[in-house]
Simulated scan of single mutants.
Amino acid sequence: MADDEDLNPKNHPTDNAEKDPDDWVTGDEPMTGAQRSYLKTLSEKAHDPDAYDEDLSKAEASKRIDALRSKAGLES
């Protein structure tokens, strides 16, 4: 039984917390509203308005958010 528990992803909630956006199943879908809002704010804080694009995918928005967080000095 212990082996079944080890295989249950609910027992390891952070295992893929840092999954590469290129590997996301839904990465090609349009970015979410939250991503859109945060990307807009970050592009303004980083003084890089060209980084914001309404037509980004979820994966591309995530990558730009990470880059802008670094540029704006907001890395975690």
Rank of each mutant, 00 (worst) to 15 (best):
M1H: 02
A2W: 05
A2S: 10
A2D: 06
D3S: 06
D4F: 14
E5R: 11
D6H: 02
D6A: 02
L7C: 01
L7T: 04
N8E: 10
P9Y: 00
P9V: 01
K10S: 05
N11T: 03
N11E: 02
N16G: 01
N16K: 10
N16W: 07
N16L: 15
N16C: 11
A17E: 00
A17F: 03
E18M: 07
E18P: 00
K19Q: 09
D20P: 07
P21N: 01
P21Y: 00
D23N: 11
V25G: 00
T26D: 13
G27I: 00
G27E: 00
P30G: 04
P30I: 05
P30E: 08
P30D: 04
M31R: 00
M31G: 02
T32L: 14
T32I: 03
G33C: 09
A34R: 10
A34E: 15
A34W: 09
R36L: 05
S37K: 12
S37V: 08
S37C: 08
S37D: 12
L39W: 00
L39M: 02
L39E: 01
K40T: 06
K40E: 04
T41P: 04
E44L: 15
K45D: 13
K45W: 05
A46R: 08
A46F: 13
D48E: 15
D48V: 15
P49I: 05
D50F: 10
D50Q: 12
D50P: 03
A51S: 14
D53K: 10
D53Y: 12
D53G: 05
D53R: 12
L56N: 13
L56D: 07
L56V: 04
K58Q: 14
A59T: 10
A59K: 09
E60N: 09
E60V: 11
E60Y: 06
E60F: 07
A61V: 02
S62G: 05
K63Y: 12
K63I: 13
K63H: 15
R64S: 09
R64P: 05
R64Y: 10
I65E: 00
I65T: 03
I65D: 00
A67R: 10
L68M: 11
K71T: 15
K71L: 13
G73S: 10
L74Y: 06
E75L: 13
S76I: 10
S76E: 04
